[in-house]
Design a binder for these strands. Structure first.
Ligand SMILES: [Mn+2]
Length: 562
DNA sequence: ACCTAGCACCCATAA
DNA sequence: CGGAATGGGG
DNA sequence: TTATGGGTGCTACCCCATTCC
């Protein structure tokens, strides 16, 4: 804790955010000359000509919620005269005070007590909820007005930032996504996020074509539309959208279709959902298509599609789901099926039943089991996916951070941008082979240990550093034979997206015997998930030690009424 | 990869 | 008043 | 009773102030 405080109190330059933004603009300007739109070039040029205070204010604003701001709410030590700083921005029209505010915008800008005062004549009362006052006023007067018409008798000013879209576009071009913000810079400066240093040359950039930037933004608009409000029939027009030439964007488009299907399904528009699922190649879309056909009562179609699918399953996960649906669909057609005994007999044999006394304070089954088994000579860790993912991330560090074309293009990446694409492993084949070979010749131990030291704290999408201690790592390397690591990593490499998850909750070590065992803990009512079952089957098939422990509580609840 | 994914928890339904 | 939710900040 | 599907909630840097109910 004190360490964290020490880090976060290191003083940064008072205009740190402005310097970061200037650097980002420079970066973009250097790499995107051919793609930048005229107004973007104009903006970059115009920005550099502004007085420092105005630049600083502008950057402060684009990092805040917006698009409306109240002058009185803009208080910064490093910008003593906000009004003066705003003048050049107002003159350029980057900030506007001559725009009307809708009622909703006004309500976003002012707190309830203020609105009660303003709208008391129309019947607003302090006892009402803010939403009730809004409803009241909507009934009376909904037309947008200028700020000084809404709020008379006030020295307050309201400004609207007009370059939000443009700045979002620049941010997208820099990061290649919209979830990262300009605050990445300061978080990295403060040591809150530490990124691997990947060599980036002047040609590294997220987008190769201006059109792709637009496509990304369009998809994002659709996504917000789908998430924020009920989906209309008109959205089916997405079915006619052209295929994207860019693989990465085409994948995003397919995912968008899948999300639209989910939204339709959730709101009960099964027929729309079915059409969209049928058009999407996103993993899982076919399964949802079959399920929705079933829900629609079209079991004939559902069965036909399921039978076609099981001939050529897209993944073990889909195969698993299909195997569960098929008997039901067959029965619906009057075709009898023998009642299938538990999912897989080999997994049933892994079962172990324990009655435990839940210590105070109450623990989850995973922690209770760990507590029950843990001892100095047989330590137990609650690791879930984190252990094997971390070992994977450390062993294959060089492969993950290899500076391949298109993989890295800004200094704040926890992994390559093309992680998710079908040819990800193929493109790095030789590097992954190198890691696997290290398992053969024994050098993997040193490789993993030294990277644990060297790379500690650096963001890696496979390594969760707070879960991985030196103790845990030492025990894992002592107790888990390299043959097992190889088996696990091989399966992961088949499909990194899907096979990163589903590992058992606990791992028990017996360092003196150099042995270990993984254990999936199950509370009553909890059941194995598909990805867990698939790993269990794999472990059984390769003699990797694993159990499923079903825990019941010995003394249910005596101290419950408190 | 913070409107996203992985996990556990809780409930409804059907054989 | 308590306490959740949101926004701003380094 | 079991099996299945579905929905929800938590958690992700951490601290602080404001807002709202
Ligand atoms: Mn579990």
């Amino acid at each position: 804790m004190s360490m964290d405080n020490a880090i976060s109190t290191i003083p940064v330059h008072k205009y740190y955010y402005l310097h970061n933004f200037q650097n980002a603009l420079q970066w973009i300007n250097d790499r995107y000359q051919d793609i930048l739109q005229p107004e973007e070039t104009e903006f970059i040029e115009g920005f550099s000509c502004l007085p420092v205070m105005s630049q600083a204010l502008f950057v402060r604003l684009i990092m805040r919620k917006g698009p409306w701001f109240r002058y009185s709410k803009l208080v910064y030590d490093e910008i003593p005269d906000v009004l003066a700083a705003a003048q050049p921005l107002l003159a350029l029209g980057w900030l506007r005070e001559d725009k009307p505010l809708s009622l909703e915008e006004l309500f976003g800008l002012y707190a309830k007590p203020e609105l009660v005062t303003v709208f008391a004549p129309q019947g607003a009362r302090a006892s009402m909820r803010k939403s009730e006052i809004l409803a009241l006023m909507s009934a009376v007067d909904t037309a947008p007005q200028y700020h000084n018409e809404w709020i008379t008798d006030s020295t307050e000013r309201a400004w609207k930032i007009d370059l939000g879209q443009l700045c979002t576009r620049l941010r997208l071009m820099f990061f290649g996504n919209l979830y990262q913000t300009w605050s990445e810079f300061v978080l990295a400066d403060l040591g809150i996020f530490n990124y691997e240093a990947v060599a980036l040359d002047a040609s590294c950039r997220a987008f190769q074509q201006g059109h792709d930037v637009d496509t990304y933004l369009e998809i994002n608009v659709w996504r917000e539309l789908i998430n924020d409000a009920p989906c209309l029939e008109e959205y089916l027009e997405l079915l006619n959208a052209p295929v994207c030439g860019n693989h990465w964007l085409e994948g995003r488009r397919q995912k968008l279709l899948y999300c639209l299907g989910q939204a339709y399904e959730k709101q009960g528009d099964l027929s729309f959902a079915q059409q969209v699922y049928a058009a999407s190649t996103y993993p899982g879309a076919r399964h949802r298509n079959i399920r929705v056909l079933e829900k629609l009562g079209d079991c004939t179609q559902a069965l036909a599609l399921a039978q076609r699918a099981i001939e050529n399953p897209e993944s073990p996960d889909e195969k698993q789901k299909l195997a569960r649906m098929l008997p039901r669909l067959l029965r619906s057609q009057g075709i009898p099926t023998q009642r299938r005994k538990a999912i897989c007999p080999s997994i049933a044999e892994l079962s172990l039943h324990l009655e435990l006394l839940n210590p105070e304070p109450l623990l989850s089954v995973e922690f209770a089991l760990r507590h029950h088994w843990h001892s100095e000579h047989s330590p137990v860790f609650y690791v879930e996916n984190s252990l094997f993912n971390a070992l994977f991330g450390l062993l294959f560090w060089d492969a993950l951070f290899a500076p391949l074309q298109g993989a890295f293009f800004h200094p704040f990446q926890a992994g390559p941008a093309d992680f998710g694409s079908a040819d990800f492993v193929q493109r790095r084949h030789a590097l992954f082979e190198k890691g696997l070979n290290a398992l053969e010749d024994g050098s993997y131990q040193h490789m993993i240990q030294s990277r644990f030291i060297e790379k500690k704290g650096l963001l890696n999408l496979f390594v969760f550093w707070n879960h991985l201690t030196q103790d845990l790592l030492d025990l894992a390397l002592i107790c888990i034979p390299p043959q097992h690591l190889r088996l696990v990593f091989s399966r992961m490499l088949c499909d990194l997206k899907q096979h990163r998850t589903g590992f058992p909750d606990l791992i028990r070590f017996w360092p003196e015997q150099q042995s270990y065992e993984m254990v999936e803990a199950k509370a009553p009512g909890d059941k194995l998930q598909d990805n867990q079952i698939l790993w269990l089957e794999y472990f059984v098939a390769h003699n990797i030690p694993v159990k499923v422990c079903h825990v019941t509580w010995l003394k249910p609840l005596a101290t419950e009424i408190a």
